[in-house]
């Protein structure tokens, strides 16, 4: 029994530490890639090519003074970033990195991920509410309404992928793509899912609620030091989760692109990492390339465009699969 828990804790540590390192270096990668797209260099002072920049940033945030506003509800105020960070970590429990390389091989993995992303809204609302500041409250309401609107289209796209798979198990979703990746028949859905993921994680061009120039960083305006750092880390970890979801559902997870023998010598984790990196690059690319959506344009996109489209795709795909007896 103790051996079981010991191996479990070891697995969790092996999962968490590279994840935190990945998040830290994603922050650096974003700054460097954004800089390259804007024809300048990003941070390159701290280490060679700025490698130690995230460590310097983390150290700076740790030694800052944690300001607890006098009119804030302290318990909820401190709990909100903890909740956000916790949810972004816990979502990693069901993501398979390779064949059998998953912390908890849940048979309802998809439903679990959907539930975790729906709970993420709580962190934002409690942050804005407990700050007891009008700007924070307004920013958190807008951010929460945006996240919630794009949850629906994410759910419907998940249903379409589920139809082609026949099981909620995420490893099964990847194994169902051994014949053909789902991005080939469902590439409009890949585009829609990518857009919904951008909006879900409050990333540009949908980052009006937290844009630097707009609502003064929205719901985390009253947070300093580690509270802010936890929100930040949670947002980037969420970004990596969404990137992994895109690869798991559409790009074939750990499977190599073509069924050559040589490709199978390369371990599946490498393919998974490559695809997630591609999606993270696309996240950063979209941030550099597109102007921000206004809030009503954003909500119009979520409700009037993506929801009917994804619903139509559910009906279309289920019809095709059922009529040709292609169901799993």
């Amino acid at each position: 029994m103790t051996f079981f828990f010991l191996t479990l804790v070891l697995k969790i540590v092996v999962l968490t530490i590279p994840l935190l390192l990945g998040v830290a270096f994603l922050v650096l990668a974003e700054r460097k890639v954004l800089a390259s797209m804007q024809r300048r260099k990003g941070p390159n002072v701290v280490g060679i090519f700025g490698i130690f920049q995230p460590i310097a940033d983390g150290l700076k945030l740790v030694v800052k003074e944690p300001v607890l506003p006098s009119s804030a509800n302290l318990v909820i105020f401190l709990f909100a970033p903890v909740l956000t960070f916790l949810l972004s970590q816990v979502a990693w429990a069901v993501i398979p990195f390779g064949d059998g390389l998953v912390l908890a091989d849940l048979n309802v993995g998809l439903l679990y991920l959907f539930a975790v992303s729906s709970l993420g809204v709580y962190g934002i609302i409690t942050a804005g509410w407990s700050s007891n500041s009008k700007y924070a409250f307004l920013g958190s309401l807008r951010s929460a309404a945006q996240m919630v609107s794009y949850e629906v289209s994410i759910g419907l796209i998940l249903i379409t992928v589920l139809l082609c798979t026949g099981s909620l198990n995420l490893s099964e979703v990847v194994r169902a793509q051994t014949h053909v990746w789902f991005c080939v028949p469902l590439f409009p859905l890949l585009v829609m899912f990518f857009i919904s993921c951008l909006a879900e994680t409050n990333r540009a061009p949908f980052d009006l609620p937290e844009a630097e120039a707009e609502l003064v960083a929205g719901y985390n305006v009253e947070y300093s030091s580690m509270g802010f750092a936890l929100f930040f880390l949670g947002e980037y970890a969420n970004m990596i989760v969404m990137g992994s979801l895109c690869t798991l559902f559409f790009l074939g997870g750990w499977l190599p692109p073509f069924d050559f023998v040589a490709f199978h010598w390369i371990p599946g984790i490498f393919w998974f990492g490559l695809k997630v990196t591609f999606f993270l690059f696309c996240f950063i690319w979209v941030r550099a390339a597109f102007p921000r959506y206004r809030y009503d344009q954003l909500m119009r996109l979520g409700w009037k465009v993506l929801l009917p489209l994804s619903l139509a795709w559910v009906v279309l795909v289920s019809g095709i699969l059922l009529s040709f007896d292609y169901l799993p």
Partner: peptide, 21 residues
């Protein structure tokens, strides 16, 4: 063009699902 690609893709998905069955 996209209808052709999507149709071919769904056919391949169907073949894969039959194999999985």
């Amino acid at each position: 063009f996209s209808s052709v690609v999507i149709g071919w893709g769904m056919y391949q998905v169907g073949q894969g699902n039959l194999h999985r069955r």
